[in-house]
């Protein structure tokens, strides 16, 4: 895809580093939206280059800022620890010495209000761009550049048609559609990037399907 000039001169952000601060804040923001902004705590493990340089590059501060909803171009980001404390949000960040990942990788362990646990793995890949590459044990590929519908559902015939029908009934165009599964008939993940945002009612209808365990909407990061 051709590069936007606004990724060359820009984006407007809180410093100091597009990959270690901006990308980190976006990873936090993704997890916040994944949980429908319902988190009161989060456990984060940093790997690779994040683990080595997070203090100097304020990666930890940026991640917490993203998790509690501070925009990445808002200077309150630098006080995210204090703001989180005031909100009663607790976050435990640790650096892993594991050599499993060499890039700027963070793993978020969260529990949603209905008691489901998720481990979300994301990487900051440079210039403030991110890639969510694993949810629980499932490999995925989500960049957060478009309005994104994510469903966790049971891998069964017909489910894709049902979901895309709802998107179509809203007259919304799907730009990219990806399906991920671990094993046949086990749980699967659908990622639909759309040109416009799906309304909350549509997300609720999708979440209401029998085989759908969860449906979330992620606004562009």
């Amino acid at each position: 895809m051709p590069i936007s000039i606004f990724d060359i001169a820009g984006p407007v952000m809180v410093g100091p580093s597009s990959s270690h601060t901006l990308g980190a804040a976006k990873l936090g923001a993704f997890v916040r939206q994944f949980s429908a902004a319902s988190l009161s705590s989060c456990q984060v493990v940093l790997y690779g280059s994040f683990a080595q340089t997070y203090k100097g590059h304020r990666t930890d501060i940026a991640i917490v800022g993203g998790l509690i909803g501070i925009p990445y171009d808002d200077e309150r980001l630098r006080n995210s620890f204090e703001i989180a404390r005031e909100m009663g949000f607790s976050c435990e960040i640790s650096a892993s010495e594991s050599t499993l990942y060499s890039g700027n990788v963070a793993a978020f362990n969260i529990a949603t209000p209905d008691g489901k646990s998720y481990s979300i793995y994301g990487e900051s890949i440079g210039g403030g761009r991110i890639n969510i590459f694993k949810i629980n044990s499932m490999s995925v590929d989500i960049d957060g550049e478009y309005p994104t519908l994510i469903t966790v559902h049971k891998d069964a015939p017909g489910i894709l048609a049902k979901i895309t029908q709802i998107i179509a009934s809203e007259n919304i165009n799907i730009a990219f559609l990806k399906l991920f599964r671990e094993e046949k008939h086990e749980s699967a993940i659908l990622v639909a990037q759309t040109d416009e945002a799906l309304p909350p009612e549509a997300i609720q209808r999708i979440a209401g399907f029998d085989l759908v365990l969860e449906a979330m909407f992620i606004a562009p990061l």
Binding site: A9, G10, M13, V14, G15, P16, S18, R78
Partner: peptide, 21 residues
């Protein structure tokens, strides 16, 4: 300096080099 202070800047092309342009 603003970038290093977690202030609001525009990356150009990066945060670390944001003062030159």
């Amino acid at each position: 300096a603003l970038n290093a202070s977690m202030g609001k800047v525009a990356a150009c092309p990066t945060g670390g080099s944001c003062g030159i342009v």
